[in-house]
């Protein structure tokens, strides 16, 4: 599977307050900046939770890591929940090694991530 061509849009979908953003197979400066832009846009639009789906991601480089740390920062600043879903192999190892996993919720796949978030939302509603 090749890298998404330069300038190709990042795939994302939104259900209510939750947005899912799909990372491509290689997270570098080009693709990372596009993902970051979409994540910030969704947060500005009022999303309370973001799922970044790494199911197709086989490689993340140093710039990709830095940009993801920026996404974490943006989510924290808006008190939004952030879930990294489907990360495996080199990407998962790197997130663990560099401490990204301390600041995000991990889920094995998108469905589990969405379920986690709905439970969180339900719990929040129940507490009110």
């Amino acid at each position: 599977m090749g890298e998404a061509p330069a300038g190709s849009p990042v795939r994302s979908e939104r259900t209510g307050d939750v947005a899912v953003v799909y990372a491509g197979d290689y997270l570098n400066k080009l693709s990372g900046e596009r993902i970051e832009r979409v994540c910030r846009e969704r947060l500005r639009e009022g999303c309370r939770a973001l799922v970044v789906d790494f199911n197709e991601t086989s490689m993340v480089n140093s710039i990709g890591v830095s940009i993801l740390l920026g996404v974490i920062d943006a989510a924290e600043r808006t008190s939004a929940r952030l879930v990294f879903a489907g990360a495996s192999g080199q990407a998962a190892q790197l997130f663990q090694l560099l401490g990204l996993t301390r600041h995000v919720t991990l889920a094995p796949d998108k469905q589990t991530a969405l379920k986690l978030l709905s439970e969180f939302t339900d719990a929040g509603a129940a507490n009110h």
Binding site: K29, S62, I63, S66, I67, L69, G99
Partner: peptide, 14 residues
């Protein structure tokens, strides 16, 4: 870009 590389190399947030 070089700032990103340093931050990403060591997992630094700022």
């Amino acid at each position: 870009s070089t700032l990103h590389v340093v931050l990403g190399a060591l997992g630094l947030r700022r």
